[in-house]
Design a protein around this nucleic acid. Sequence first.
DNA 1: TTTGAACATTTCAAATTTGAAATAATTCCA
DNA 2: TGGAATTATTTCAAATTTGAAATGTTCAAA
Lengths: 149, 149
Amino acid sequence: MKTTKRYGKKAESALGLWVKLARAYHTFARHTAADIRASGLTQPQFGALESLGHLGPMQIGELCRKQLVSGGNMTVVVDNLEKDGLVERVPHAEDRRAIIVRLTAKGKKVFEDSFPKHAQYVTKIASVLTEEEQAELSQLLKKLGTGLQ
Amino acid sequence: MKTTKRYGKKAESALGLWVKLARAYHTFARHTAADIRASGLTQPQFGALESLGHLGPMQIGELCRKQLVSGGNMTVVVDNLEKDGLVERVPHAEDRRAIIVRLTAKGKKVFEDSFPKHAQYVTKIASVLTEEEQAELSQLLKKLGTGLQ
DNA sequence: TTTGAACATTTCAAATTTGAAATAATTCCA
DNA sequence: TGGAATTATTTCAAATTTGAAATGTTCAAA
């Protein structure tokens, strides 16, 4: 009972692509999640820390967009990071609606300790593909991602 | 404040790939989720229906592996589909631990009505890439996904 | 001004998801 | 055969996530 051609050639190509995209993503995510848990952070916490560490202090809303999670969720994530003393909320100087989140000294240290290790881990699992293949894949994923807004 | 080269060339390639994979996946998922909601099903429900519709009746555990969700979750998903009369649980003929889930007549109808529409939708959004690009991307994603088990 | 639309964040309830423990059945070998 | 290990599913509590409503702020046009 093969599914090929049942919806036409174009549809089979698109559906196959979607299945493989989902599988590759979930598999990669499962691996990185295991590595992140070792650092004592949750995945969204690690993601927020990463954005703040690499890009500097930013608003909650900007963090949401970088990390692709909802506002209600980011409030909780930042709450928990704040409880752990890794980030702090400071009022935006010009816009009183907005809040800037930034790493504390402790947060900076955690970021600087854990991220290079994680980068190495990601490098290791990505090495299933050659660097040329990675470049090709990146380029196609970028086209797909940006083509859909 | 650019991040390039901070962790070495290989790491930048791998990290960039991971970011783009996550973005492409989330963007694609957001689009398909909107289309699925229109059919009155949740995403996991739709996924289970799709597996059952395309591959025929199967065990809960097999559904979990196809849909990449935990067992505890699939129990709930099948419970809800059963409540809606779309699937039924039947005991496995040989293995009394196991349960076979299969589409009811109603479930089959819902599947046959909604899936072709969804396939068209997926085809439409995938058309951001040419068919050649889709084939190339599929092949690389497959290598990445299977290379990590 | 003032009004209204847009925006940033938080709150809240509901839905989803996970992982661990419990239950039950099967398989493997010594 | 007997018992240990494995497998299939469910249950349960906890964590995560979402989306809608609420609160307060900004901005621009009338």
